[in-house]
Amino acid sequence: MIVFFILAFLTLLFSLLVVTQRNVVHSAMALAATLFVMAVLFLTLDAPMLGVLQILVYAGAIMILILFVIMLLNPLSIEARPAAWWMLGSLGAAALCLQLAALVHRPAVSAEAAVPASFGGPESIAQSLFTDFALPFGLASVLLLVAIIGAVALAQRQR
């Protein structure tokens, strides 16, 4: 319980920093921290495999990519912070937050299910991935193919 609150606090703190930091690099750092803390949260939910993936894929690959683009484009300007727009946007988000929280705070399952020790480990995920989810798994590779072709087509030097 205590662990959850600490992690939750950190997640929210860092994610708020992502949104509020005016310097894009600071935001990126905060995002990396958020993702890292969330990986730990995943661990508390018996999802070790995903925790590791979270760090590898997100905090690793995606964050590096983002930082790379930031460096490449090197936008030096610090963005303005128009109070009215921030207020409006935050209010909207807050309203959504309240609604979602109100909807999810009483789920059907309340008691924790008993799970085997291997739950969330590589074997159990792989087991599911290659049987029940073989099709989405295959299609995910198509998705990645699309992304690669697309990125090349857009970012490549003009003929």
Binding site: L88, G89, G92, L96, Q99
Partner: peptide
């Protein structure tokens, strides 16, 4: 923002 408001209104 309109998207967001639309969602909220639907709810």
């Amino acid at each position: 923002f309109a998207f967001l408001i639309g969602t909220i209104l639907i709810f």
